[in-house]
């Protein structure tokens, strides 16, 4: 995760000081720890892996064990200012369900994911091999990812589900990409709200 500190920096810029923040799939709590330090957020992580959960506790953050595939049952509507999912959406089956839940319990959602449409990934497929890169570090046989989608795919999904894209930043291995992000960016970070 530390390789993607730039997505953490973007996320921090979208958070106001003192917000209530929920970080889904918080891992060892690095991002929340960062947000607590630079934005003084009242932060909660969600994690279902016992080892990562323990690492989060050791890291001094609040972490709640929950299976995200079952939604955010028990969390109140509109309770959080921002609900974050950093580089985990592609590892979930219930994609639409969790996006709906994030915007139910949060005023805004922040989502980052690896762009499968990145040109190096396309090149790899053209050469007959599944892509392995900085943003897709796993082999096809051991990847935790279960959903394979591009920036263009995600834009369509948001449109279909009445989700407003308030802001989008795209990166090529850490450098901001301004043109042709679906081709030139390896990772995208979205700020989402409810349309209308």
């Amino acid at each position: 995760m530390t390789a993607y500190r730039y997505d953490h920096e973007v996320i921090a810029q979208w958070i106001e000081p003192g917000e209530k923040v929920l970080d889904l799939g918080c891992g060892d709590g690095t991002l929340l720890r960062h947000l607590m330090e630079v934005r003084q957020v009242q932060g909660y992580g969600v994690e279902n892996d016992p080892d990562k959960l323990q690492a989060s506790v050791r890291n001094g953050i609040n972490v709640i064990q929950m299976d995200l595939e079952k939604g955010l049952v028990g969390l109140e509507d509109g309770f959080f200012d921002h609900v974050i999912m950093s580089l985990s959406l592609q590892a979930m089956h219930n994609t639409q369900g969790i996006l709906h839940e994030m915007l139910r319990v949060g005023r805004e959602a922040v989502v980052s994911f690896p762009n499968f449409g990145y040109w190096r990934h396309r090149q790899s497929i053209l050469n007959g091999r599944m892509p392995v890169s900085e943003s897709l570090p796993h082999q096809w046989f051991n990847t935790p990812n279960v959903r394979f989608f591009t920036i263009a795919d995600f834009d369509v999904l948001c449109e279909m589900n009445g989700i407003a894209v308030r802001e989008r930043l795209a990166f090529d291995e850490g450098k901001l990409v301004l043109e042709e992000p679906n081709f030139l960016a390896s990772v995208a970070v979205y700020r989402l709200g409810r349309a209308g």
């Binding site: 209530k20 909660y44 016992p50 959960l53 609040n62 709640i64 064990q65 028990g74």
Partner: peptide, 21 residues
């Protein structure tokens, strides 16, 4: 246990929760 967790969360208290297998 989750009832306790959600009630603490409602009050913005610091809380961690684990369901041990």
């Amino acid at each position: 246990s989750r009832e306790i967790v959600y009630a603490l969360l409602h009050n913005k208290r610091n809380v961690s929760y684990a369901d041990i297998d």
